[in-house]
Nucleic acid binder design. Structure first.
Lengths: 219, 219
DNA sequence: CCAAACTGTCACGGCTCCGTCACCGGTTTG
DNA sequence: CAAACCGGTGACGGAGCCGTGACAGTTTGG
């Protein structure tokens, strides 16, 4: 979500190299639409964009029921204190002044995605008889604790946090295993199987989307 | 209750935007007076404040009959990590290290105001036959005092104060040892082992969560 | 100034867990 | 309708994790 095409490509390239999935928007209006429909895990927002001003986009997103929880990084041309305070007041979580190194941006993205803000909001996930308590590292089915290994728990957490949306095997390998090589592996499948075994009746929430990946069902 | 005017205004703005009523104090002395007279629902306390030190303010408030129950969030500069454990012993309920995003602070405020029961830090923790007397720096099993070294006691305290929640080795190294480097160490394991030896029958309260860390059991 | 206590690191070994493979039934494709 | 594709399943060997004992460097106390 940028104004200069070159800069957009540069950022996109570096983020993809770090293993992230990137979607871009040409102006503020498009940015708003995509943000609300795709509900990304993080938004990088340039202040100087056409159609709808960056600050305005931020403000609107913060009022949105579903999008308000998404962390936002702001890109600003001036190092002016006004923009910084204004941006933070409107709910941005971090901001970067141009010019900046792509590496710095990637680091800030990582920090925000693993940061405390995310953990605070998602420290407990409940879906009918299944409950995930992340700080306690405990999964409950109908109130009874289920013994899960560390990897199984992380996999289930990632899927549950993005419930409704299909996660490809590559994405899961990146987020759960920190694998960046795209080697074909049956690892994910095996772990999903073990999860289903242990979850018992709650296994119905784990959907297989043939040819794509896995999904935690919504409602 | 801050030292930098800009930061105070920033926090104030964001809390008000979240629907809270906010009162500020310029120094520790003023903070104490206002806290005792207004009896707010929550206090955000900067460690680096003039007149009366933040830790001192915390200690005084905890001794006060009427103000002792008020949750306190401490703001600490990244340098003085020793303050963290010290603050916990003095009865702070949560910590935020600078720099932090305003949104993160608001989230922590919400959490503390939402569930006071699960976040209350007392100076005495009792779980069946095990009792921890934090101000006296003493651990008791079935009423009999157990000889613990300084490090062992701090480790046990940190684990017990976050009972139920798994603490990673890195987290424990950070909070108990002030280690920030992520080198692989068996130090935590060794100290847990020594703790278990000394605790005897009460050792069952220290859970190992394979691949994650350690946990003080709940109930 | 010495002895005792405390602390961090290391090596070892048992045991759990994990990644991979082969196989097979079901589904899609041409 | 056959061939290719895909994902579920069971099994297995290696890797990684953690408990344990030992030890050297440092601190404490007499």
């Amino acid at each position: 979500m940028e104004d200069e095409p070159d800069a957009v490509e540069l950022i996109k390239f570096n983020l993809k190299a770090a293993g992230y999935e990137v979607v871009t928007a040409a102006d503020g209006d498009e940015a708003l639409k995509k943000a609300k429909s795709l509900l990304p895990n993080l938004i990088i927002l340039d202040l100087m964009i056409p159609e709808v001003d960056g600050l305005e986009v931020c403000k609107i997103l913060r009022r949105d029921v579903r999008a308000s929880a998404i962390p936002i990084i702001m890109l600003t041309a001036k190092a002016g204190e006004v923009d910084r305070v204004l941006g933070l007041e409107l709910g941005a979580d971090d901001y970067v002044t141009k010019p900046f190194s792509p590496r710095e941006l990637v680091l800030r993205v990582k920090r925000l995605l693993r940061g405390p803000a995310e953990n605070l909001e998602t420290d407990q996930i409940t879906l009918n008889e299944l409950r995930l308590d992340i700080p306690r590292h405990q999964a409950l089915v109908k109130g009874k604790p289920i013994e899960l290994t560390a990897t199984e728990f992380r996999l289930l957490t990632v899927l549950a946090q993005r419930r409704g949306r299909v996660q490809s095997r590559e994405r899961l390998l990146h987020d759960v295993w920190d694998y960046d090589n795209l080697i074909d592996t049956r690892t994910v499948d095996t772990h999903v199987r073990r999860l289903r075994e242990k979850l018992g009746p709650a296994a119905k929430y784990l959907d297989t989307v043939r040819g794509v990946g896995y999904r935690f069902v919504e409602e």
